[in-house]
Nucleic acid binder design. Structure first.
Length: 238
DNA sequence: AAAGTTGTCAACCGCTATCAA
DNA sequence: ATTGATAGCGGTTGACAACTT
């Protein structure tokens, strides 16, 4: 009696792993002669080195006549979504309403597609939060920039007035302006950082351009959000 | 072109329900 | 009523293909 682990290996004498065309042929011939059921005897009688469970699964999911192959149609997808809303993960029950489709197929479909949507929805949510945060920061920066510009204008006015009154030299005037520029360009959020005004303005104009348009058009797909929200609601009520 | 990631699907595992002895 | 065998179900895994970086 062999006891090994893994597909293609044997445990308690039964073969495991992918079915060969020869095995499929043996199983199909046996079922066509004796009918479905008695899967344990299939395993013993049909010269198949497979357990009954494995035989049944192979027949039901792959060999049974009338099985459809290929992608599910949009109609079938709709049925799955609706029935899942009613029965949840009752795959075999759902499969009864989709002739030619197996519970395994439906289960795989649901898992693949629903999980994917959930995942992408999470990404979209994260991106939304990121953009919202950026926008809030930008609004704050813009406000501070406006305040600074007012201060700058006022200072320029004062300095010009001072210089025009005092009639100082060009060198002295440049030096004074340099100090003022450093003060104005200092990032209002941090005493240690120094960000050029131009950068603030560029960022502001970029966000004004991208802002809401970006949110509602290219950055994510609202249709998907609605779908996922609906599906979640439907599942929650199940 | 190669390596890494993601998607798909077949098959297995463990559990429960059912039924006959 | 109990017990063991079998069928069926849902969750999970592994292999491989397709796609992305």
């Amino acid at each position: 009696m062999a006891t090994m682990i893994g597909w293609g290996m044997q445990e308690q004498g039964w073969r495991k792993g992918p079915w060969t065309p020869e095995e499929d042929k043996l199983l199909s011939e046996y079922v066509s002669l004796y009918g479905e059921g008695r899967w344990s005897s299939v395993a013993r009688s049909a010269a198949l080195n497979r357990c009954g469970k494995s035989c049944r699964l192979r027949w039901v999911n792959y060999l049974r006549p009338g099985l459809k192959r290929g992608q599910l149609t949009p109609q079938e997808e709709g049925i799955i979504i609706e029935l899942h809303a009613i029965w949840g993960n009752k795959w075999s029950t759902i499969a009864r309403y989709l002739p030619g489709r197996t519970d395994n197929e439906i289960k795989n479909y649901w898992r693949t597609h629903f999980k994917k949507k959930e995942k992408s929805s999470q990404k979209q949510e994260k991106r939304k939060q990121q953009i919202l945060k950026q926008k809030q920061q930008q609004q704050q920066l813009q406000l501070q920039l406006q305040q600074q510009q007012q201060v700058q204008q006022s200072q320029e006015h004062d300095i010009k007035a001072v210089f025009s009154r005092a009639e100082t030299s060009t060198e002295e005037m440049s030096e004074t302006y340099g100090i003022r520029q450093q003060m104005v360009l200092k990032n209002p959020n941090s005493e240690d950082q120094c960000m050029p005004n131009k950068m603030y303005q560029d960022f502001a104009s970029w966000f004004d351009t991208v802002g809401d348009d970006g949110l509602s058009s290219g950055l994510w797909n609202f249709a998907d959000d609605y779908t996922v929200a609906w599906m979640r609601q439907v599942c929650a009520t199940n």
